[in-house]
Design a protein around this nucleic acid. Structure first.
Lengths: 241, 241
DNA sequence: CGGTCTCTTGAGCAGAGTCAATGAACGTGG
DNA sequence: CCACGTTCATTGACTCTGCTCAAGAGACCG
């Protein structure tokens, strides 16, 4: 059917947002790209640099963050397979946030122009990109509620639920066992807490038999109770069709 | 030129995001709409209700919010003239947040379908809508940094700067005097603080001669210092062309 | 073997929350 | 024109969640 399936994970995300015909699908898969493999910790996008290219995450985990000048970093979002990194930023002149690899990852770099011209030529693709951006705004809004209106235990429970739910939706988990790509410090930056406090709260969640942690993994022992703790309602993720 | 300028404020917002030709402009102004005037406090969109219509704010102030079941409300965004309310929500099945009037307002209700078909017929309009959504995501990200990584004084300073800056950009202010459409309780919901604590911090800002408050208004006495307190860099608002 | 990164623990502190009461401004209806 | 209710702003006393600083332990890697 198509000569090159590299961008298939991205196409999948688009198709979930708008119906695409054969021409559209081929146009997406035919986007000129440049493949890169990056180590954990490498920087993909730097805030303020010109956003010439849009980066599509093919495998692995990444996160977006912004820093205040006092050195405090806030994590804004987690990214998984198939997502376009900083999709909101690539409509602007410059990147609006940093993006870094949480694990070793593969990305496809696509020039911003080719993505734009795709949106012009195939309005359905434009609508799909619009919806993907709207979805990322919806997740940001939920994170804002999380940080602004829940206590530490609730915030962490909520975040763990999100990480697990998204892996379930991707089908990249076995049973109740999930990849936990964030360190405790990064968990803190994602929830507006200190790494020290994250540590203590996570101990509490383990003691109460809600979760179990091994290096780089979490198991959710009591999904229902964890959802309640974090007041987690997955609608904002817009996962189900 | 055009028979009906009601939607002109909205057109202006679109034009700031993408170049539009005569056909596009006329198509926007020609959107079928229904005009409504609403009192302060009335609800425009309710979370979870079906998002049949997109609401364009023609005059006045409004805000989006989400509630946690424990009754805690988080304010997600402020809206001013010309903005499409819940623009991210109107790509989804149901509204993803509440929207309420902060002052008496005028809105134009446009059916979601007519907006979509506009985006299909005129890809440039689709791109403009995409960019507007990206912009609202950028503001959400900054609010997340604000709530997650600044102390109470910084958060309020930042928010006041944003409110002022946006009014400046709209040209709806005189000198250093701005409309302050939020009560202290709503300021708290916007910054993850209690109304009691907002009160005390605002007193501090007044005592230090950074701002002055009268009912429904703020004056910024020392713009530079307030910016520093709130670590305010207006880039995220994407106001300048 | 030493260095780095992450997790863990303890002690003390403080920023922000809670609860409760009072006051000022405003609109409304008798 | 006044009495009343409502909404907001303000204040005080007390509590507590989460932060700071500091040090140690385990894992991993070159």
């Amino acid at each position: 059917m198509s000569p090159d399936d590299t961008l298939a994970p991205f196409l999948l995300k688009l198709e979930r947002r708008a119906w695409l015909g054969t021409a559209e699908k081929e146009a997406v898969l035919g986007l000129p790209y440049q493949l890169r493999s990056l180590e954990r910790g490498s920087s993909i996008i730097r805030e303020g640099e010109s956003a010439e290219r849009c980066h599509i995450l093919l495998s692995g985990f990444a996160f977006s963050s912004r820093c205040s000048p006092n050195g405090a970093r806030a994590v804004l979002a987690l990214h998984m397979d198939g997502e376009a990194l900083d999709i909101s930023g690539c409509t602007a002149e410059d990147a609006s946030c940093d993006v870094q690899a949480l694990t070793s990852i593969r990305v496809a770099d696509v020039s911003r122009e080719s993505l734009w011209s795709l949106a012009h030529e195939y309005p359905q693709i434009g609508v799909a990109l619009w919806r993907l951006t709207a979805r990322s705004a919806s997740v940001l809004a939920e994170w804002l509620v999380n940080v602004g209106r829940r206590d530490a235990r609730g915030r962490l429970s909520h975040l763990i639920c999100e990480i697990a739910q998204r892996q379930k939706a991707q089908g990249i988990c076995i049973g109740a066992d999930y990849v936990m790509p964030l360190t405790q410090e990064q968990l803190g930056d994602s929830t507006g807490l200190t790494s020290v406090h994250v540590n203590r709260v996570m101990q509490g969640l383990r003691k109460d038999l809600l979760i179990r942690c091994e290096k780089g993994r979490v198991s959710i022992l009591d999904w229902e109770r964890l959802k309640r703790e974090g007041d987690f309602r997955p609608g904002y993720l817009q996962l189900a069709a």
